[in-house]
């Protein structure tokens, strides 16, 4: 069994949102909702500045708070470690939306909770997730964290600074950020509707 995860190198990311638009098109995400979004923060004072461009999406946590709260079993973890939603079982009650500390889920008007799937339909065909494939800055690496020969494992091993969002929640995210530009690590998190 694989343990699928994603690296996002913040020293490469320019916040262009190619990933976010690719996701929107690939998954036909409705207006007003997103599975993937970009945060931009400036740190410091003129002229000693840095800017953090940070894409965010479902972290496919190893310990996902959205799964146990689901009353119908629609939210579940696959053997490969993806957190997924079975649209047929979902009753759109919103418990998972509230439970996610990353604000990664939304209710699709078709009647189910929805979020990033790591483009499981593309993975099944041997393709990369749409966000990874399109990234013009090579900021993203997707693959099996358990396979020592995978690109993701090698990149992680060679990487400098590594962070995850809200480590204190104990969710063990599998979206890992490399090379946060600020010496203090990732900038403070707030909900995405800030």
């Amino acid at each position: 069994m694989a343990r699928l995860g994603m690296l996002i190198d913040l020293s490469a990311c320019v916040g262009c949102a190619a990933c976010a638009v690719a996701c929107k098109m690939e998954n036909q995400v409705p207006a007003g909702a997103s599975r993937l979004w970009i945060r931009e923060r400036e740190v410091g004072t003129f002229p000693n500045l840095t800017v953090e461009f940070r894409p965010e999406q479902c972290n496919h946590c190893e310990n996902p708070p959205c799964v146990p709260v689901c009353p119908t079993g629609a939210s579940y973890q696959t053997p490969d470690g993806l957190v997924q939603v079975d649209y047929n079982k979902c009753i759109a009650c919103g418990a998972c939306v509230a439970a996610c500390p990353y604000d990664a889920r939304y209710i699709n008007k078709k009647g189910y909770a929805d979020k990033c799937t790591f483009c499981s339909h593309r993975i099944a065909k041997g393709q990369q997730p749409a966000c990874v494939e399109t990234c013009p800055t090579y900021a993203r690496v997707f693959g099996d964290l358990d396979d020592p020969n995978s690109e993701i494992s090698k990149t992680l091993k060679a990487a400098g600074r590594q962070d995850v969002l809200r480590p204190e929640m104990g969710t063990r995210p599998k979206v890992i950020y490399l090379n946060a530009p600020s010496k203090k690590g990732l900038t403070q998190e707030v909900t995405r509707h800030d």
């Binding site: 262009c16 949102a17 190619a18 638009v21 690719a22 929107k24 098109m25 036909q28 749409a130 399109t134």
Partner: peptide
Amino acid sequence: VYKVEGYKENPKSRGMLCPRGQGAPA
């Protein structure tokens, strides 16, 4: 057209696209 992508054999896209290209079909 639901989606557009770059393709590897093309020396400009090389399989990748920017946000404008990704969103252009709309």
